[in-house]
Design a protein around this nucleic acid. Structure first.
Length: 427
DNA sequence: TCTGGGGTCCTAGGACCC
DNA sequence: TCTGGGGTCCTAGGACCC
């Protein structure tokens, strides 16, 4: 028997997705690139992670390594930007704020996507409402979006894809759903990735309609409970609920590739300490403590000429902590355990896990005094850094040279908190 | 030369207990 | 001498998402 819970009452879900979000953010401040082909690169200028429609039409693929498409980019005079997450995060918050004027139930699903509940609407007014959402977001933030509406999250994803593809802006999946699902390739269904697609194709399931029509038991047996939920949702039976309040994270990972290969442990240490400081600051902002800390390092998995090395070490703390100094001590210890001389390292990172609410932390009899003192210090550091800029106060161990830090050669240097980057509008 | 980063959830299998 | 079986918990690894 399946243990999937579902409801049968009226359910209308809209998925609002920003078009080429990072590119659209960059365009906000540079009217000149409004009509140009634009791409945004991942950290370290590694891959293409956002493309304007023009860039897509020129054959630039999502996730493609920058060096592989560099020629195509220069030949076509495509504008290139390094990613600026502070900017995208800021714009994202504005978009979400506008969305909240349309429904009390909003799930912020990612930086550029949100599900909203429209079950309170009558069917007749839905499409018009979708158009209003689009135009208000565009007017108030400058970001173009696509809106997909249907009776489940999975179907609203389908609707959104169709809206993007057909450039209609809004699609409400109500009539002729089966016809549309037949044209919807299985690998594009939300929750069906590379491996599952392979499995489905082997079993002659090639589109969303096929998956909708196989038995739940079969899907569950061949995949898992999530696979079965996807199939149910394609049938219009909601199984994946809206998640309104943002739950606190359970893990916190900070990692980066290096701008160049790193061989010696001193530089690795600098990077691990820097990542550790960032991670600690993040969990403190959420008032969390970490019980476990993992450090990992690896060489490039793409370099076929050199031997690959990848290792990690996890340390369990006796007492959960968010104290940078405490965490760093352990991180450095872990790093020294896994470091091997003679390799060219490409990436290092740190994961704080087993995160707990600081408030609910059961106290060790001996710690309160000590803890209070360190808490004050950490709060002072966080405050200073938020006021005077990142790294105003750091720890000597994090190093000042940072020769390993990532490349960002195409940064637009836009800071939405700074007046200098406001665009000048000619009248 | 140059290939991102940060998450979540699920399952199988081992350890351990009675 | 016979060498069980059911339950729970944890972890590593895999798959997925944006």
């Amino acid at each position: 028997m399946s243990s999937i819970k579902y409801t049968t009452k009226k359910n209308i879900i809209a998925l609002i997705d920003c078009n080429s979000f990072y590119v659209s953010c960059e365009r906000l401040f540079k009217p000149k690139i409004q009509k140009r082909a634009v791409v945004v690169l991942s950290n370290n200028d590694g891959c293409v992670i956002s493309r304007s429609q023009e860039a897509k039409d020129m054959g630039i693929k999502m996730g493609e390594p920058y060096f592989k498409v560099k020629k195509l980019i220069t030949r076509n005079k495509i504008e290139v930007y390094s990613s600026n997450y502070a900017l995208y995060g800021d714009i994202s918050r504005r978009v979400m704020k506008v969305l909240k004027t349309f429904s009390p139930k909003v799930e912020i699903y990612s930086i550029d996507e949100a599900f909203i509940d429209l079950s309170f609407m009558d069917h007749e007014g839905i499409e018009e409402y979708g158009r209003q959402i689009r135009s208000r977001i565009l007017r108030w933030t400058g970001i173009p979006t696509s809106v997909g509406i249907a009776s489940t999250k999975t179907l609203s994803k389908v609707a959104n894809h169709i809206a993007k593809k057909e450039k209609t802006g809004v699609v409400y999946l109500k009539k002729d759903i089966d016809e549309k699902l037949k044209k919807f390739p299985i690998e594009k269904v939300w929750g069906v990735g590379k491996q599952l697609s392979k499995f489905y194709y082997k079993n002659n399931i090639r589109n969303a309609y096929d998956l909708k029509n196989v038995s739940n038991t079969w899907v569950k047996k061949g995949t898992n409970v999530l696979g079965a939920k996807t199939a149910m949702e394609l049938r219009g039976i909601p199984c994946i609920n809206l998640q309104m309040e943002q739950e606190k994270r359970k893990n916190c990972c900070v990692s980066r590739s290096f701008g160049r290969k790193v061989k010696n442990i001193e530089e690795l240490e600098e990077s691990v300490v820097t990542h550790c400081l960032n991670a600690a600051e993040k969990i403190r902002a959420d008032d969390q403590l970490a019980k476990t800390i993992t450090v990992f390092i690896r060489t490039s998995p793409f370099d076929k000429n050199k031997k690959y090395y990848s290792n990690s070490k996890t340390i369990d703390l006796a007492i959960p902590s968010s104290n940078s100094i405490e965490l760093i001590k352990n991180a450095v210890k872990a790093l020294n355990d896994i470091y091997k001389y003679g390799y060219s390292y490409q990436k290092a990172g740190i994961i704080l896990s087993n995160l707990k609410d600081a408030k609910q932390n059961d106290r060790n009899l001996l710690t309160p005094l000590l803890e209070n003192k360190s808490k004050k210090l950490m709060r002072a550091i966080d405050y200073t850094n938020s006021k005077y800029g990142r790294y105003a106060i750091s720890i000597a161990h994090a190093g000042l040279s940072k020769g390993w830090k990532m490349r960002r050669e195409h940064s637009s240097r836009i800071d939405t908190a700074s007046f200098d980057s406001l665009p000048i509008i000619g009248v």
